[in-house]
Nucleic acid binder design. Structure first.
Length: 254
DNA sequence: ATGGGCACCTGGCTGC
DNA sequence: TGCAGCCAGGTGCCCA
């Protein structure tokens, strides 16, 4: 997409997580794509006069295809390029978003308070200890708080806690410095491993080429309730925290 | 400031 | 075969 010009935005269904501004197609038509990048789970498409901020939510996907490709249910918008290609967004649950930022997207309200990227040096044991101090929220929910660290979703939170040997219900402020350091490394490792495996396909996730991710086979606890812990054979437990499923080994995680 | 719960929405699966 | 109930990869917002 880089260097191409936006020919049009075809907005079929503006009712996404936030209603897409009906003036957006007129705003971006004719602008050149200066860069395509990512911050947390937001995709940022920098144009001449501002940036598009996209999010896939739980069920969203983007495909680069020929604009003549027949529409499928939940194809909510097409970003047409002057090159003749088309970026098509599909999202059954409509938890995804399409926003416009006229200034620096880092200052956009949704991005301004985000925590560090987990694979950078800014995310380290000292940082995590400082943020966790005094916090009584469960460590699992703390790790999923995007103001603390971005990118750790429901699957990888459980997996990282397992790898670090930390009980998901322990108060964030009561996890020792050594264990927080182990958590930093566990988060880095699990995200790296998952990325190398192409992601985790639970049901229907596929990458831009249509390839599923193979990390599901390497999950230690997620969706393994009742099955033996791979390390100690104790049955994996399932609990609910903040309306989200959590999986852990009661023997390996303290 | 913090923590907890709800909201947004559709589809797929299970069990009766 | 139909249908109610439950669950799902995210995360902002409101209230106590």
């Amino acid at each position: 997409m880089r260097g191409r010009q936006v020919a049009a935005l075809l907005l079929r269904e503006p009712r996404l997580r936030w209603r897409v501004d009906p003036r957006l197609p007129a705003t971006i038509a004719g602008q050149r794509v200066r860069d395509v990048r990512r911050r947390a789970k937001y995709l940022i498409i920098d144009l001449d006069a501002g940036s598009l901020i996209l999010h896939l939510g739980m069920s969203g996907s983007l495909r680069m295809l020929d604009p003549a490709t027949p529409l499928e249910p939940h194809d909510h918008y097409d970003l047409l390029l002057e090159s003749g290609r088309c970026l098509r967004f599909n999202d059954p649950r409509r938890f995804g978003s399409l926003l416009w930022s006229a200034g620096d997207p880092a200052d956009h309200p949704l991005l301004a308070a985000l925590g560090p990227e987990p694979l950078t040096s800014a995310f380290n044991a000292d940082y995590l200890a400082r943020r966790a101090r005094g916090r009584r929220v469960a460590i699992k929910q703390f790790l999923m708080d995007q103001r603390v660290v971005v990118g750790v979703g429901n699957i990888y939170a459980s997996e990282a806690l397992y790898r670090a040997g930390v009980h998901p219900r322990r108060a964030a402020g009561r996890v020792s410095g050594a264990r927080l350091a182990a958590l930093v490394e566990a988060i880095r490792a699990v995200l790296g491993d998952a990325i190398r495996a192409g992601g985790t396909t639970l049901r229907d996730y596929v990458d831009a080429d249509g390839t599923p991710g193979y990390f599901r086979q390497r999950l230690y606890v997620y969706e393994r309730a009742g099955r033996p812990c791979r390390r100690c054979r104790t049955p994996v437990r399932h609990v609910v925290q903040g309306q989200r499923s959590t999986y852990y080994c009661p023997r390996c995680q303290r």
